[in-house]
Design a binder for these strands. Structure first.
Lengths: 218, 218
DNA sequence: GTCTATACGGAGATAGAC
DNA sequence: GTCTATCTCCGTATAGAC
């Protein structure tokens, strides 16, 4: 009974899905390098090794392809949030360093989608919303953690948690933008140093321990 | 003696220079909105009210026009540096707030060129260098000021000044990217609040004032 | 599912008249 | 200094064969 015609090991549906992802990956790669408007569908097709027409078999328009890329490859958000999961009871001075370093590593490891989101969000309304959403979610999650540490008595009760979270996140993004390109070892060393110094200052403050100042440093 | 033919009030050279600047301004405006690759020379010409061909009378290629825009309109750098001039002897807790708020206001007031620089620097090598140069100069200048305050005994001697400067600058940039669009009054209120909270935390630190702490938590 | 062929407009850039 | 006209190539997208 020849019914499903399932003679090959991969079904047609699987093949299609694989092709779809191939196109998305090639598009992401090229758009991160040259921008959306600076990347032609022909270039994307060449990168995949297919003809241009096939792209339009999978995506109705080039703009839709961009949205599909964003949807499919925004996994860094979940990865970053995972680094915070279940940490509420651990002291900030023990885990915040690895959270922040972990975040900048996630950003660096997903450089393409981060770059694409940041740059295209300036000219594309839909991605603009996505970008603001990402910032909101990450800052919100970090704020929640910091709040739990305020409640635990580790951090001062009048700490502006959201501003702190935004400061951390902003610094990581700009660190990424100005240091990607570096060879891995040097990047790692700089990232570790920068995040360490940033957190140390944040914990202790910047003022000189002049007698009778601050909160009362001995 | 009919020599220079200077019968009109504006010389031809002045007219040409004015036209050149008109083109640069229109290009900046459109590129900030739609990106370089997303802006056609025809659009720029229409915005100015001239024909496309005239653009190529003033600039050899579209790419050269982009560079000219960057060169001509990067005045915000000087403006930001001016805000720091001659402040070395004034305490950080008195002037840092207005410096930082002033910087974010400069960024916002020159939103077009800042946006263009940030986004196009990701896909254009020449602007990439310019962007890194700007970050370096601003962070360097702020670092120098902070160092002078360390020497003056106001800030702790082991303060990581460059990391602090980068943190401030990064936060201002991300604040700009996520809050431009807001109505002026609300923007101002948020900017003032955010920079205030950021600096307060930076000065005092984040730790709770548990008795006998500060540099070594119980 | 993939390719070939092609429509159609718009892109950057040039030549030459005024 | 400015415009008109035009060249040439490349852009997205579609139709239809296989």
């Amino acid at each position: 009974m020849p019914e499903t015609g399932r003679t090959t090991r991969t079904t047609r549906r699987e093949q299609a899905e694989a092709r779809r992802l191939q196109i998305i990956d090639a598009a992401l790669n090229l758009v991160a390098q040259h921008g959306y408007a600076g990347t032609s569908t022909k270039q994307i097709a060449q990168e995949v090794g297919i003809t241009e027409g096939l792209i339009f078999h999978y995506f109705p328009t080039k703009a839709e392809l961009l949205i599909a890329v964003a949807r499919q490859r925004m996994t860094f958000l979940a990865e970053a949030l995972d680094l915070l999961a279940g940490l509420d009871d651990l002291p900030a001075h023990e885990v915040l360093g690895s959270i922040v370093l972990g975040w900048v590593e996630v950003i660096q490891s997903q450089a393409d989608i981060v770059t694409m989101l940041l740059t295209e969000s300036q000219t594309n309304a839909e991605l603009g919303g996505a970008f603001r959403g990402v910032v909101d979610e990450l800052a919100g999650a970090l704020s929640a953690y910091l709040t739990s540490r305020v409640r635990a008595g580790e951090l001062r009760t009048d700490l502006p948690v959201r501003a702190s979270a935004l400061m951390f996140f902003s610094s990581l993004m700009m660190f990424f933008l100005t240091n990607r390109g570096l060879p891995p070892e040097e990047w790692r060393a700089r990232a570790s140093r920068f995040t360490g110094e940033m957190l140390d200052t944040w914990f202790r403050g910047a003022l000189a321990p002049t007698a009778g100042r601050t909160a009362e440093p001995a």
